[in-house]
Amino acid sequence: MNIACRATELTKEYVLKGETVRALRGVSFDVPEGDYVAIMGPSGSGKSTLLNLLGCLDRPTLGNLFLGDKDVAKMNDDQLSNIRATRIGFVFQSYNLIQQLTVVENIEVPLYYQGRASSASRKRCKYLAEMVGLGDRLGHRPTQLSGGQQQRVAIARSLVNDPYFILADEPTGNLDSNTTLEILNLFAELNKNGKTIILVTHEDEVARHTKRIVRLRDGLIQSDTRN
């Protein structure tokens, strides 16, 4: 089975007010293609740091991180941007849609930074919007949508560049329980169709919907269990 993401001895140190903080102290794990992983842990466990590293928003101090067959640990800023644009699908807690753009335009943003925005890609964006159930709201702006709908747009956006994995950061944190369920069902369906999903959460309720739970504590993996 192919690997979507492989971390080996990931270490991240920050200097905060003259003190070195070791946020991650050697984390190793594999995410095979088609997996659905929840990363859990209390605050201060290094969860956010790991998320930033997986999302290529930051570089590890030590260790390697392979996305597909590429080691992103030593890449420069532009190369990381390129990886983010082509290989990672982000879903955030607060949706993070761009206010002045419509639903379709928001879905198109990652393509835009690959120079792949075209009329063909427009069609794909519309298709994705329909897939997440927003076919009748293509021209709406984010402020005209409910939280659940906005998160659907964000999920459609994360799929547009056909990424190695979807990286979801507390995707249901701002949603009520019904909508949470809808979103989790959508993730489950995507996973069933072969999408790899890494979901960061602190809610056991949410984590229970995944296939595997990785628990972090004090910058180390505490447990790695399959549901």
Binding site: D77, S81, R84, F90, N96, Q99, V109, Y113
Partner: peptide, 16 residues
């Protein structure tokens, strides 16, 4: 700022 963050996360380079 937030929009810039979103765009950067979605793959915008500095030059973009």
């Amino acid at each position: 700022t937030r929009e810039i963050g979103i765009r950067r996360a979605l793959g915008a380079r500095r030059t973009d």
